[in-house]
Design a protein around this nucleic acid. Structure first.
Lengths: 197, 197
DNA sequence: AAATGTAACTTAACGGCGTTAAGTTACGAA
DNA sequence: TTCGTAACTTAACGCCGTTAAGTTACATTT
């Protein structure tokens, strides 16, 4: 039953976004009363959060194939592209996951183990950066793993989130997303890494 | 009356965000019936859009003082910081302006003249980039003004939008915003500009 | 000065939303 | 066979955006 609700909600959510997921519409689709859902989920927010929690895991697992690559720069590049791809393929998920402020998150309520690179995409990126620091890849003054990680994340997030929020805005003559993502990733790597020999 | 509605809405919006602005609450505050607002604005979306259109102008005018600076790199740096500052001071505005997809925008409905650097912050940034290209500041392969502009914008937007959406997320140990903004701007400039002499 | 037109409102309602209180059913355990 | 409780339903509350229909007030015209 829980699964039925989640699956239905996920489908509606992926197709038409947050506002498509109404308790009443889910109920109609699964042929139960709206109240039935509240027996399995505290409220709509809990439902959506559970949907997205799953997708955080999906994202992290998408990165798994990258882990075996040796070169951290290549790793960074691939991670960036996969991240952009994820956002483009799941814009509605991406919006809730990364573009919407959530009042507060109870860390105990999450099944994900934060910090584990296999379940936590941020931790995965951080592990690449840590490897890069070890290999003296980054500029000398850049010593903090978090700061570098957050900057790389912000750069790529900027590209994909502008794409999602503004891609059909007449205002800007958008260059193709792929090129923008490429340039962002290259620029970040170039700007963050140590020059010369 | 129009102004009264807008001012009230703006105040509520700045204080508590989008969901605080309900037609009914605005009406209550100005002591009119909810229907009265519809005489002056087509719907809620039109109201919010008018609010934000004003803020696009405010943002562009914030940049005015930068125009007189000669060095494009310094211009870029200052523009970036002002942009971050704007986002941090007006997170609710920023969300609607840059983090929320809007179904479609009727370009005729806007009073702003797109492309004019004094009224259009994107055009302003573009003009700096154009100057940089003229001075052969950027790497040789970077020939397109739009692409460079969009990449710089995306980078800074990434920093501020992650801050707004995720700053109270326990998951990540956020480095101070200023440092993240600094590093992003420095990294972009370093990565995009031509090296050596 | 009276009639008219219309701009600027109000009242009342519609349909939708998230959510909850109270009632019902079905079924496994004692 | 009784009982308890898990899994539901019905009905309602109070919000929301929006609209149809009615009212007021006032400027313009005759």
């Amino acid at each position: 039953m829980r699964a039925l609700i989640l699956d239905t909600a996920r489908e509606m959510f992926a197709a038409d976004g947050y506002e498509a997921v109404t308790m009443r519409r889910i109920a109609e689709r699964i042929e139960y009363s709206p109240t039935a859902i509240y027996f399995h989920f505290k409220d709509k927010d809990a439902l959506i959060r559970e949907l997205c929690e799953h997708d955080f895991l999906v994202l992290a697992q998408k990165f798994a194939s990258i882990a075996r690559i040796a070169d951290p720069v290549e790793k960074l590049r691939r991670t960036g592209h996969l991240y952009v791809q994820f956002g483009l393929e799941n814009p509605n998920h991406y919006r809730v996951m990364f573009m919407t402020p959530h009042p507060k998150i109870d860390p105990a309520g999450s099944a994900l183990r934060h910090g584990n690179p296999e379940e936590d995409a941020y931790a995965f990126l951080k592990s690449i950066v840590a490897q890069g620091i070890e290999q003296e890849l980054f500029r000398r003054e850049l010593r903090d793993v978090e700061l570098i990680t957050q900057t790389i994340w912000a750069g790529v997030h900027g590209v994909i989130s502008l794409q999602i929020a503004k891609h059909n805005d007449q205002w800007v003559e958008w260059w193709p997303l792929e090129d923008r993502a490429d340039l962002m990733i290259d620029t970040l790597i170039d700007g963050l890494t140590r020059k010369g020999k």
